[in-house]
Write a protein that binds this DNA or RNA. Structure first.
Lengths: 136, 136
DNA sequence: AAACTCATGTTAGCTTTCCTTACACAGAAT
DNA sequence: ATTCTGTGTAAGGAAAGCTAACATGAGTTT
């Protein structure tokens, strides 16, 4: 009861070290993703970053996507599209399958357009993810 | 999804400054309550306290009880009894009303025993708490 | 009244954590 | 071959946290 029930996913409660533990990312990586506007952690009066649970989830998604061999530019596009569809459709959440579908579409478009959008390895895992899907 | 669903109430995620904000207690107070074994926050490798959501709830309860004009010794007894009844009866949670009942009983016993247990003001508010009760 | 207890405030000195900035580097893209 | 990208790492400084110690006001005991 009490506080825990009032914890909002957007409340900046978590310090850098905790987020590093939760996400298994380095501080360098987290700051880099912020630099690219993928997250916007709050700042304390003393300029320290404070993260929300939402931020942690975002970081985990970023990590997950990057590990698939997608580059930052693409991650940004995926997130932009995700926000777009979320706001236009007034949806707050998006499922993993939806996310993968969006990325699949992104990939198709990028391939058609100029094939410069996707680098760093192939995306074959996105089309046969039975093993990974089972884990989620 | 992802992390937030895995957040356990016992995970030490929160720093001192955040807990101060959440509870509106001073660092001095929080450390003092720990000194009296009312909470046992984790420690980082660098000796910093890290609090769980459970700790925050406990602190809020402590604060609430102390604000009624009860002293620490009594708070300890209340908590001891609470733990006892929780473990023996295999109950995890205790309602506010139950808590107040326990404290009422405590007070009666203490008065009978040696009347040294309760100091610092009277407990009259416990018997006519209509205004405060309405807030919870 | 004097001495004591309790819960909290405050200060000092020190350690840990976090910040920014800058440079380095390996692998991929051009 | 050169450039771009994502990450590592180091330096110097500042914020936040720690312990220990003394201070204090309200209530209690002697």
């Amino acid at each position: 009861m009490y506080v825990s029930s009032e914890i909002r996913r957007t409340m900046p409660l978590l310090s850098m070290s905790i987020v590093m533990q939760l996400t298994d990312l380095t501080a360098r990586q987290i700051r880099y993703y912020e630099e690219h506007h993928l997250i916007q952690p709050h700042r304390t009066a003393g300029n320290r970053r404070m993260f929300s649970l939402n931020d942690v989830d975002l970081l985990l998604e970023i990590k997950d996507i990057l590990e698939q061999g997608v580059n930052m530019a693409e991650v940004k596009r995926v997130f932009a599209k995700k926000n777009e569809s979320a706001t236009t459709a007034a949806e707050k959440e998006i499922s993993d399958s939806e996310l993968r579908e969006i990325m699949r579409e992104e990939r198709r478009q990028a391939n058609r357009m100029q094939k410069t959008s996707i680098r760093q390895g192939d995306l074959s895992r996105f089309n046969h993810r039975s093993a990974r899907d089972a884990k989620r």
